[in-house]
Design a binder for these strands. Structure first.
Lengths: 225, 225
DNA sequence: TATTTATGATAGTAATACTACTATTTTAAA
DNA sequence: TTTAAAATAGTAGTATTACTATCATAAATA
């Protein structure tokens, strides 16, 4: 039996639901590939339309502009990741074990998830690493936030913050520590591969080392002194 | 006596040295103001030229494009900050005290430095917080890195990494911890002001709380167990 | 004084980021 | 079954962006 995994998206992110038609799904899958290939700055709706074999205007019927599309893709990613976290930590009693599992999920290279047909999660994970922060590092961040565009990201942060608090009820920075490990899971990966002298993993370039670093950082922080 | 502070810049960052002429210094000072005001995405050389009262072509004689200008400004900032760190930690024996001072410098709101006439460090600090990562989160990061554009950033990271190692010679992630506190000094500030639920400082919005968080994070991490 | 150098003004091009309009197909109601 | 509404596709056009090139003039310097 094949189970389809549907992630419910904020309707203000699109003009027409891209999950609802062939063209829409093509926009999602090919935008992931194209952004991964040429980077978000060089990515345009015209180039995307050429790849898909449709017209620029066709893309604009689904997304207002490329910023909205990036926010859509990041929101999708965080929604998908929250599901992964809930699924993979389900039935694990010990919050410490759950927290370790979360760090694994955040930092590990993602494999393409068969349950979501059109989006390649492995490529999307790479995009989140190198382009993800651009979704909120803008002048419109507050307006976008009012429209709840970043809710999936904040939800993941909250879930992780809650596990941290479960591990260590007295720790007073659970949310900041959560956002720190989320961001660092990505930044240390980017640095390791592109600016290796900013990390201690430049020689081996192993994600497992990032995981060890993050585990040490987190468990040292929440330990009762 | 007024002492001028000159930061030596990588020559590949500009076409004509902006420190060498009135127009060049105007480009620097007004680009800081304009990027701060409208954000890097909306910032164009045409708008900058209008503000300064010159022409677009005039700006292009100094900088190849706005990306190079952003990289210039971030490199300038990190050069300036390294000087601040060396100056303010000079003659302090205890590496622990030095490390605390560094965290203060990274996270604190900057005041305009009288010794650098044209650049407003307070505004530049805000730009680094919200736009700084865009200098390296690009497809050209490796080429830019080969040209040493990020050396000032890496130097600051190395200085901090060395202090960490001095505090705790056995700690095996000094560089990654250094890049973590640098990035988090900025990201926690951005989150606190724009996406407060990602932090524990949303109520007071006090930079001192970020400093406490970072101090706890760092000293818990490097403590011998 | 001659000459390099910096700035200014104007124009032009290709690409980007859209919007508007028309044609066609699909669906759904009368 | 006819007809009208709705969705989709394609064409064309505009304003802005991101430059480049040219020429004139002013200032600095040799």
């Amino acid at each position: 039996m094949k189970i389809e995994l549907q992630i419910s998206m904020n309707e203000a992110l699109y003009l027409r639901n891209p999950e609802s038609s062939e063209l829409g799904r093509n926009i999602l899958s090919h935008s992931v590939e194209l952004i991964h290939k040429i980077g978000f700055e060089a990515f345009t709706f015209k180039k995307l339309a050429e790849v898909i074999g449709t017209t620029e205007a066709g893309i604009y019927r689904y997304f207002e502009n490329k910023h909205k599309l990036l926010v859509y893709l990041t929101a999708w990613y965080w929604g998908w990741l929250e599901f992964q976290i809930r699924f993979q930590t389900n039935n694990i009693k010990d919050p410490t074990v759950r927290l370790k599992k979360v760090i694994d999920l955040l930092a590990s290279a993602v494999e393409d998830d068969e349950r979501t047909s059109h989006i390649n999660e492995a490529l999307l994970h790479q995009i989140i690493i190198s382009e993800g922060s651009k979704a909120y590092l803008t002048k419109q961040v507050s307006e976008d936030n009012k429209q709840q565009f970043f809710k999936p990201y904040k939800d993941v942060c909250e879930v992780i913050g809650n596990i941290i608090s479960e591990c260590s009820p007295g720790y007073i920075y659970p949310k900041s520590l959560a956002s720190t490990i989320i961001e660092m899971a990505h930044f240390q990966n980017f640095f390791m591969n592109n600016l290796p002298s900013l990390t201690d993993f430049g020689k081996t370039k192993q994600v497992t080392e990032i995981i060890s670093f993050l585990n040490h950082l987190v468990f040292a922080s929440i330990k009762k002194l």
